[in-house]
């Protein structure tokens, strides 16, 4: 099996999706047929309180700010992967110091960004 072939991944994904779909359709068919429809049952579950469908729930800025900061720091980590992979080789052929310097500057910017985020209370979840 040539290592690195992508087709098995697709085959497994299709198998998993059909397995899940069969499960859902199967439980649908196996369950009791005469489903008692009642408004109370259909309402979203809110621990017994009558559902108040307020127009716009209080929108917290924190969620999408965390997602934005996640993207930016994730890319900085992804840039570290190629560097980490060849770090041992560059140590062996003597260019370790240069590699360390290049990544030191990059990680320095990463740390400055992180410190600024923490200090600017962007990540406080109060």
């Amino acid at each position: 099996m040539s290592s690195g072939a992508l087709l098995p991944v697709l085959i497994l994904a299709v198998m998993v999706l059909t397995f899940g779909a069969l499960l859902i359709v199967g439980t649908g068919l196996l369950g009791p047929r005469k489903v008692i429809k009642s408004a109370a049952k259909e309402m979203p579950y809110e621990c017994g309180l009558p559902g108040q469908e307020t127009k716009d729930t209080k929108v917290s800025v924190r969620f999408y700010l965390t997602a934005i900061l996640f993207i930016l720091f994730d890319i900085e980590i992804i840039f570290m992967y190629p560097w980490a992979i060849q770090y041992m080789d560059s140590l062996k052929d003597g260019s370790g110091g240069y590699m360390l310097g290049v990544m030191g500057v990059f990680v320095g910017l990463f740390v400055i960004g992180l410190i600024w985020e923490v200090k600017s209370k962007a990540l406080d979840w109060k």
Partner: peptide, 15 residues
């Protein structure tokens, strides 16, 4: 990198 940065700022503006 640039596309992700553009998406981040664009969405912050749109929000």
């Amino acid at each position: 990198t640039i596309a992700a940065a553009e998406a981040a700022v664009g969405l912050a503006l749109a929000v």
